[in-house]
Structure formats: structure tokens, C-alpha cells
Design a protein around this nucleic acid. Sequence first.
DNA 1: TCAGATTACTTGTTAATTGCAAGTGAAAAT
DNA 2: ATTTTCACTTGCAATTAACAAGTAATCTGA
Lengths: 143, 143
Amino acid sequence: MPRSRPRTKLRSGCPLNVSVEILGDRWSLLIIRDMMLRDFRSYTQFLESYERIATNILANRLKKLERYGIIATQQDPLDGRKLIYTLTEKGMDLAPVLTEMVLWTAAHEEHQNPELIRQIKKDKQKFLAAVRQRWLEKSSHID
Amino acid sequence: MPRSRPRTKLRSGCPLNVSVEILGDRWSLLIIRDMMLRDFRSYTQFLESYERIATNILANRLKKLERYGIIATQQDPLDGRKLIYTLTEKGMDLAPVLTEMVLWTAAHEEHQNPELIRQIKKDKQKFLAAVRQRWLEKSSHID
DNA sequence: TCAGATTACTTGTTAATTGCAAGTGAAAAT
DNA sequence: ATTTTCACTTGCAATTAACAAGTAATCTGA
């Protein structure tokens, strides 16, 4: 369901360029990874992730991802200070992209987390289905 | 074939982070796209690509991609001024990543090049095989 | 109840990266 | 011999990222 109007001027409408302009930085995909694979949902959790994103960059990226409909934000009903960030369906649809990136690294670069790679390699479709199923079951996603 | 030693300090060894640190900017994947899908092989061709990369950024990215073994550089035997840039096998292995990014954009954002998307959607494996076959036939790749 | 902690930020400030314009040297074409 | 092409480099301005500190709203524990 492509949008009828670009929200910013794009360098080109090439579908690869579009995704690069949305996701091509050093943090966006890591935030999405934390949501998809680690079920992170709060600002503090993202801040405490291993790669140590700066607070202003995190705030900026969360806004950008929400603006693009990749994540959604809701208030925590149990704690007025907290916001809950969740992946939208559009965000979940990035699972294959992340998966292929992980496989590429596994094949060509030094890396960690052999268990994740074992799982993906064993049955990619099953892995993707499981990730999506977990997301469906959370059911706190509101697109 | 992962390298035994990281060439720079990485924020983390998470396989997604590794690929993000190598490819997560606004130009690297576009250069790879031009090599993979459009058979671009020279500095001038990359410069003339629609998105208009700056000359210093292009030089910088070509060096980075070569350093990571994603592309290889050779002299043009017919013209002493020219260099020929080609994808290595490691670079070709990015085809699934690019393909999934294109599919994601096709599903969720306004974009162009419906013919490419039609091809990929029709038979993804066949598309990937064809891209690799074209690369093999060029046979000017030296890893 | 109220001091202290927690949460999700913002606001400086500095450092790094990007983008633009112009220039360079070697090789090729005219 | 001069001009053009090629793959860059250099200098500088503008944008972006990183770091440190602060803030308002909310919650928690004595």
C-alpha cells in the first residue's frame, strides 16, 4: 500500500533508494532489531542496548520511524511516564531484510550470536513465521 | 568465511550491526545496485547515476567497499586512465538483501520501476539466479 | 506526603561527516 | 600540441552525530 505522495523530496524513486533513504543510517535498523527480536518497547530499553545510542538520536529516530509508519507509539496504561513503542505490520515486514543482512554477515564477516544464525539457516521461512507469530500474539500493535 | 580480526572497532558483534556498520549509509548500497543491476563499472558511470553522488563521497565509498572486499578494482587494459570496478562474490551475495529491500518498498512506499518489481515477484529465486548468472558470465571479477 | 527516583525526552556544545565547487595530474583523443 | 577525459583531491560551508547536562511529568517508598 504505497503512499500517494512522498513526504519528503527523494533523490530518486528507485525502490532501493527509497528504502535506503528511510533506513540507511547507523541506528534505525538496530532499533527495529531490538523491537523485533528482543521485544524491546520502551525508550530506556533502547538506550540500554549494547550499541549505546545517544538520547537525542534515539528520540529523532523514533519520531522518524513513527512518521514512516514503521513503529507506533502508545501510552502505558499502568505507568503515565512510559510510552510503549511497537512495530507496525510495515515494520514487521522488514524481517526478511534484517534476516538477509544477518545471513550476509554470517557468511562474510566476523560476528557473534551463532545461535541466531543457526536458527535462521536451519529453516529461514520457519524463523520468519515464528518472529511474525510472536508479534501477532503480543497484539499490542496498533497500526 | 568470516575474517579472524575486525578491521575497525565495532559497536558490537551482532551480525545485524556488523552489516549496518558496513552498508548503513546513504550511498554504499546504491553503488552496489548500479554494479549489480546496471553493470556500471567506472567512476564516471557512478557519478552520472540518477541520485548524483558527490565525487569525494564516491571515492571514499569505493575505497571502503574495496577495503571490505565487496568490490575489486582493476586497470582497464584498453585505457590507462580508467579503472574497472567489479563486484566480488561477497558483493554479489548482497543480492538477497537488495532484493528484500526493493520488495519492502514495493509493498509500502511510493516508488518507480514496476518492471523490476514484477520480475522479482514473479519468481524471486529465478531473479537472483539470473543476476548471479550475468555476473558469472562477465567473468571480469577477480576476488 | 513528600523527597528521591524514574521516564522520556530537550538543549547546548563539540566533533565528525557530507555536500559543493574547484582544481590536479596522468593518459587519450583530436 | 592542445584539448578532453578520467579518477580522483582539496578546501570550505552546511548538516548531522555524539556527548553532557538539564527538565517536566510521573511514580515509589518512608
